[in-house]
Write a protein that binds this DNA or RNA. Structure first.
Lengths: 137, 137
DNA sequence: TGTGAAATGCAACGACGTTGCATAGGGAAA
DNA sequence: TTTCCCTATGCAACGTCGTTGCATTTCACA
């Protein structure tokens, strides 16, 4: 874990700070999409909410995390595939359980190709499925 | 148009008020997904933002409009298919142009079926494609 | 046309996104 | 190891949005 955190920050040319370490640690330990509020719940004693906000923003820009669509507010999840500032790669499916509220990446599923009308160019595709997850069914 | 608005409200058993009429009219005239901010821009001289908020909430509950996922804030669009309080039906694709910022429903496209892992049950599916629309390309 | 129920406006609160600025802290070079 | 610069952080502040309570107005049916 220590290795993962240090290596991730170094790979993306970011300074090692306690806030960044703990945010990364939280993402790694809780295997689900997190909102800024979730992170604040865990870290607000130690870090200002603006710092958490800026940490998320930085991670987003560098391709360490990606935004997960949600019908209420924003959530974020670690990028598993190789992402960088230049290219993001997130055409997998997100599943939100309406019972327990958890949002997860279904890593193995890919978004089926959609044939767009003439003139439309796709850059990014987000598929959110809501329903009941395996634990709650 | 008059007919559409009156009939829509009556069909969903809602009182006819000027705010509801104008919100519906705005949705009908501008053929795209609108945020609460968009509506306030047009209507805030005449109606309180809370009234607009509650109008949207009511329309959502009754199946007159549906929520459109967006990576920044919520947007709403008219339900074209038959929707009611009981059953919503919105498995079509939404397209957001990163150039002009417009979000539209691609009515003719349906979300391809995704085979979920065992134990997962889908209730609602949202597909958002971002890129360049026909007008901007 | 009167009346009860529903819709509206206003005030207020919290959560979030965002920015500016002064201070603290990381890390490379001496 | 120490110094110094640049970056990250904390704090204050502001705007937007979602949300609720309450008093007042308005709709629609009897």
């Amino acid at each position: 874990m220590e290795n993962f955190i240090g290596a991730t920050l170094k790979n993306h040319k970011l300074r090692t700070t306690s806030c960044r370490e703990e945010v990364l640690d939280t993402f790694a330990n809780r295997d689900m999409a997190l909102s800024q509020g979730d992170l604040e719940g865990t870290l607000k004693d130690r870090f200002d909410r603006v710092t958490i906000y800026r940490t998320l923003k930085t991670f987003l820009e560098r391709g360490i995390i990606h935004k997960v669509l949600d019908d209420e507010g924003s959530r974020y999840a670690l990028c598993r595939e190789r992402c960088s500032e230049e290219s993001h790669n997130h055409d997998h499916v997100h599943f939100k359980c309406t019972k327990c509220g958890q949002t997860n990446c279904l890593e193995n599923l890919y978004v089926p190709a959609v044939k767009l009308p003439v003139g439309y160019q796709a850059r990014e595709v987000n598929l959110l499925i809501q329903g009941i997850c395996e634990k709650c069914s």
